[in-house]
Amino acid sequence: MDMQSLSGGFTNPPQDSSRAFRAALETLARPGTIHDISGAKAPAPVSEAAATLILTLCDPETPIYLAGAHDTQDIRDWVAFHIGAPIVGPERAMFALGIWEALSPITAFPIGTPEYPDRSTTVIVEMEALRQDGMRLSGPGIKDSALLALPDLAPFQMNAGLFPLGLDFYFTAGTRLAGLPRTTRVSDLMEAN
């Protein structure tokens, strides 16, 4: 185990995680908004935002799927030391982490059951950057409409069509965080005009 795996946790876990959670809550409750989230550092290529998010929400009770380039021994060691979550395949994951291409197709993840729609994966998508343009969002948490650049269109429309089942998404880049719950309806800004 590399020494890098032992560092990068919160300085003051209760306070740092409370601020991180509020960013996670605000972004998921108001799709299209972007908040800063920081405090934890995991080995590359995990962004500070994604590291902080999984350190805030995950523990030994939440199996994590590491997709593609995010599935390295360094990252597995970091998760084992700081979080203790089991590393699993997509079909058992409560949380998934990776870039969009590695996470696709998202149909592999559990979407919940009609009686327990909450038993679905929260997917954390690592992005190059977060921008408030591209796709038009509407639905709960959005006053009229909001804009957010998404890595794709059809999978998110399909996901919203599954409501009340479906996946919930976080997008991370650097220390920035955006959220997209299953309730958000997504349309292409170009097509809408």
Binding site: S17, L25, L28, L57, D59, D168
Partner: peptide, 23 residues
């Protein structure tokens, strides 16, 4: 902290499924 993480996950699923009661 472990309890807070469990409650926070429930709150986020609650936000994602408005009106659904998360155990």
């Amino acid at each position: 902290e472990q309890t807070k993480r469990m409650i926070r996950r429930a709150i986020l699923k609650g936000i994602a499924i408005p009106g659904y009661q998360v155990p």
